[in-house]
């Protein structure tokens, strides 16, 4: 086993991840899949979510904390990674990031306002999902992107988690989405692109 692969490229432990977007974009499922993969890796993990009016309209979020140590406080205090799949979510959660935060956003959904020169990975996530078969799997494309860029969990664990948490009849579609996400991030893995 190559433990190098599974080591988070963030030396941070715990690593705090916030997945945000609009209700219905599957962010809770994405959080659960990522958490499940971390469990496969033998890590400690906490996954929480924001329900309520936010789950139907406006910004919705799901959070995952992964650590080799015990996780006490269960919610993200400062995100190490922020994924945004909607403009609302970006506007709501971008101010809570700092210069260390890895920002991944859907370039087809979000137009970042004048940025502070921060590094942002803006990728056509929903568009890629649609090309794979359905916009519905944008959440899993995003997971593929995020893991390729950040190495949060073993890629095989992420596959196992998808298989575990996705209904049988959608499995193939989601596996393709994961792959598409990983491919989408591939050219960016060793360089950082600035947007805006």
């Amino acid at each position: 086993m190559n433990t190098q692969i599974s080591r988070s490229r963030f030396s941070k432990d715990p690593v705090q991840i916030r997945l945000s977007g609009a209700g219905g974009q599957g962010l809770i499922t994405a959080g659960v899949i990522l958490a499940e993969a971390a469990v496969v890796d033998g890590k400690n993990v906490v996954q929480t979510q924001s329900y309520g009016p936010e789950a139907r309209l406006g910004a919705s979020k799901s959070e995952v904390i992964i650590s080799t140590k015990k996780i006490a406080y269960p919610q993200v205090t400062k995100p190490d990674i922020l994924l945004c799949l909607s403009q609302d979510a970006f506007e709501k959660y971008f101010p809570q990031t700092n210069s260390d935060t890895l920002l991944i956003l859907d370039s087809g959904q979000i137009e970042p306002q004048a940025s502070d020169g921060r590094l942002i990975y803006a990728l056509p996530i929903t568009e890629t999902a649609a090309a794979t078969g359905s916009k519905v799997v944008a959440n899993v494309v995003a997971l593929g992107v995020m893991n390729a860029l950040a190495g949060l969990v073993m890629p095989s664990s992420l596959r196992e988690a998808v298989a575990k948490r996705v209904p049988e009849r959608f499995r193939a579609l989601n596996e393709h989405a994961l792959e598409a996400g990983e491919k989408l991030a591939e050219p960016l893995k060793n360089r950082k692109e600035t947007v805006a």
């Binding site: 469990v39 890590k43 400690n44 993990v45 906490v46 996954q47 929480t48 329900y51 269960p74």
Partner: peptide, 10 residues
Amino acid sequence: DEVLSHMREN
């Protein structure tokens, strides 16, 4: 409570 009820952990 709501957070504990809905939270997932290993």
